[in-house]
Design a protein around this nucleic acid. Structure first.
Lengths: 208, 208
DNA sequence: ATTATAAGCTAACGAATGTTAGCTGTCAAG
DNA sequence: CTTGACAGCTAACATTCGTTAGCTTATAAT
């Protein structure tokens, strides 16, 4: 069901937009990548802009689904209680590492992120989406998590918002650092591990 | 000496490239911004690409000068000894805030950063420059600073590399957060202040 | 006074761009 | 068997692109 031309066009267009930006990509480029001639594209989308818009809609829908499935709305983190209550430092690192490598290696995630990065100053929708995804929601998720840690006694009390910033920002920086530079990955993962370790040591409750 | 057409072209071209990217900008756009006709551009630069290259060279030269003047080569931070030895938390925040607002508001710095951000996946030189400027050199500077703090007894001992990451990453994240979103600046400055405060408290030597 | 250079202009070019028109073949529904 | 929709194709279009040629004018040097 995935091989129909209409979705292939979106995939290939995204691959191109993610590197060269909207203006840097020709409808001929897209057609060539798909394996058809440029005019045939218009059997599926009414314009180049239409292809771009379809990618954005698809992106927003996928993200909405992801947010729902991750329960990142910040309302009821109780669901993940079992996941985090008996968590060790090593476990936490493995979780963070998983997310880190996902955002660095998942084909679709990487392309979308790069397209947003490239187009953020031309297209406010891209800018909004990027900030929501990589700053607002990411911080909210961490904040909610730390609130829960504090509430459940795993962490000492503190400002969960600041904890979120201080925990997430290095992860974000290291991700930007490795983006398009796979040779930096090994070192960054070491930093990441040490960061998680230090953070755990700093805030974990020593009273118990 | 600054008002000659040749540099005005660079300025206006940069302003456009920083928003729409290389392919999104027309030589006519540039000419219109300068106040001349498109063919007249070719009296000063031999092609559109040539204009872009000239911007890059100018950027690299400016940055080299800045690095030299800031003594950010990581070799001998002894010079700044007097600046930092008797520093208070409030002083440190004011310094960080100054740099933070400079990178957010200085016209030239903002445009260059955005141009690098937009073009990093097409042009490796842009990517290199961005990573050097906003990651490598920034971290190196912080690392050197913290090494000096530790050496001089202001800070407790610790891994200066990790300290650099954990100190700088939130600053970087908050800058990205405020980029093109001035309404977020007030809140981010508050976070920044609290971050500097907590960092100072965490690492400042309590033995003295 | 003459000349040379620099920097603007208009006109124009070839190439590339997004898009439309209209033809052809495939294939499932009637 | 016929039909109609779908999805590809070629040809072509108007527009826009980066760029060149060649003219004019002002300024500075000889």
């Amino acid at each position: 069901m995935k091989g129909d031309t209409k979705t292939i066009i979106l995939d290939e267009a995204l691959s191109l937009f993610a590197v060269k930006g909207y203006d840097g990509v020709t409808v001929q480029d897209i057609a060539r990548a798909v394996g058809i001639k440029a005019p045939s594209l218009y059997k599926h989308y009414k314009s180049k802009q239409d292809i771009f818009d379809a990618i954005l809609i698809e992106t927003e829908n996928r993200y909405k689904k992801q947010v729902l499935s991750m329960n990142m709305n910040g309302s009821e983190p109780e669901k993940d209680k079992d996941l985090f209550l008996g968590i060790t430092e090593e476990d936490l690192y493995e979780k963070v590492k998983g997310l880190f490598l996902y955002y660095l290696h998942d084909e679709y995630a990487v392309k979308i992120r790069r397209m947003m990065t490239i187009g953020q100053y031309q297209n406010e929708r891209l800018s909004d989406l990027y900030k929501k995804q990589y700053i607002d929601d990411a911080l909210l998720y961490q904040k909610t998590l730390f609130q829960f840690f504090i509430y459940s006694g795993v962490f000492e009390s503190g400002d969960p918002q600041m904890m979120a910033i201080q925990f997430y920002a290095p992860i974000y920086l290291l991700m930007i650092n490795c983006d398009n530079r796979s040779e930096r990955e090994k070192e960054s993962l070491a930093f990441l591990k040490e960061h998680v370790r230090q953070f755990g040591q700093l805030y974990s409750n020593k009273e118990k």
